[in-house]
Amino acid sequence: MTDLGELLYLLYDAHSRVQTVHAHYRSWENELLSSRAFDRNFERDEGWEEYERGRPTRPRESRAELWLEWPERVRKDTRSTGDGEHNILVTKDGEPWQYFPKSGVNRRVGGKPRHVAGIDVFDPAFLLTDLRLTPLGRKAVAGRDAIAVRVEPRASLWDHGFTHLDLLEELTVDGERGTLLSGVWRLEGEEMRRFEFERISFDEPIDPAAFVPDVPAEPRSWGADFPKAKHVTVAEAAELASFSVWELPHLPEGWSSRAWYVPDHPERPETVGIEYVRRDATARLALEQQSASSSEQRTRIVRETVERNGRKIEVMGAYGGSNVEVELEGTHVRIDSQLPMDSLVDIAATLARVR
């Protein structure tokens, strides 16, 4: 049986035992459970009903190859096993950049590039202050001797953000290096996230060329090739759109409106937007409209469903925000505003089709 003192020593000083790493690992995540876990930080006492339209609820899985020269020289090639999406994360001049070959996006990103599943597996001393760790015995992971560990949050831990340390339940720790070799997160008993190294080698020479992948030198943002929004009247937007367009039946006194149209693109669906703004700039209301068939591809979190004026209106919530959505004759309409939620529901119930 592994001694707790041995485990704590391995974790506390793990970073000093890493010079270079070359590894392959896999990770997967239930996106709906992760969204719910994130939303707990804002709606702790609310009951949420999660569902996903257009595809079954299943984990998003990826495999990655990692090169690390301690502490911050990193390259990470990640491929999704579902859609084949490929991205390369590499440090340039000490800063992490991410390149997506399919779209050509090349951007500087935040965070620590050596992190796996959101945590620093090579310097895990941070776990000691937030978690209660219980060694359960030895097991083999990635061909290495490892310590299986049960994890429980300390009473003072409340983890806001992506890491979700309060939901981490299982770890395996390399018995020689202290590196975390696998981890499992659960939300209400259901597995939410997992990572596991499949192969890993330490302190072997790495060809410097590994850290200089064939990526563009110039940054390129998301949507660089997207068609630009065309500012039009509401009537013109209705003529351009392939779906029915909806508006407020009457423009409230003291408000103005404007509209825009965005053509269809392989990475972004055809969209009509109508924005209503009070002339004193104290309130705003936005209607975003797309074909219901294209909007079905999004993961959506429904907080409550309300029947009003014969329409089924969904009160939504994600990452601390709220809005309402309604489907009208094949058009998906999303309504955003700082107005009270009851007002948004009333608006959804009275939207009129543009003639």
Rank of each mutant, 00 (worst) to 15 (best):
T179K: 01
S182Y: 00
E198D: 12
M192C: 09
G137Q: 10
L157Y: 10
G161P: 07
F197Q: 02
P205E: 06
G175Y: 01
D159R: 09
T172W: 03
E190F: 10
M192W: 04
R186D: 10
E170K: 09
D207Q: 12
D166S: 13
E196C: 13
V184I: 04
E170G: 01
V141W: 02
E196T: 11
E204I: 04
T172P: 01
K139W: 01
D207F: 10
D145A: 09
R150T: 11
H160T: 15
R194A: 10
P208E: 13
P205A: 04
V141A: 06
R194D: 00
W185F: 05
E169V: 07
E198M: 15
E190I: 09
A210M: 12
I200L: 08
R150N: 14
E169A: 15
L187S: 14
A155Y: 02
A148N: 06
A155W: 13
P153L: 03
D214P: 06
L157R: 13
E198H: 00
L168S: 08
E204S: 10
E169H: 05
E198I: 01
R194V: 03
F162R: 10
L181W: 00
P213N: 03
V151Y: 01
E176F: 04
H160K: 13
F162D: 13
L187C: 06
V151R: 03
V212K: 14
R194S: 10
P205V: 07
T163Q: 14
F211I: 12
A146H: 03
G183D: 07
L167F: 00
D203E: 09
L168Q: 13
W158S: 15
E188T: 08
A146N: 08
W158E: 14
S156Q: 14
V184S: 08
W158Y: 11
D174N: 10
L180G: 04
L157A: 12
E176C: 08
V141T: 09
A148H: 04
G137D: 10
F202W: 01
E170S: 15
G175C: 11
S182Q: 08
E176I: 03
H160P: 14
E152T: 07
G175T: 07
R144I: 05
P153V: 12
P213Q: 09
D174Q: 00
R199A: 10
D166I: 05
F202N: 05
A146Q: 02
E191H: 01
E198N: 08
G161S: 06
F211T: 11
T163H: 15
S201G: 06
R186K: 05
R177Y: 03
F202M: 11
G183A: 12
E170L: 01
E188K: 07
D203K: 04
R138T: 08
V149G: 12
D166Y: 04
D174Y: 04
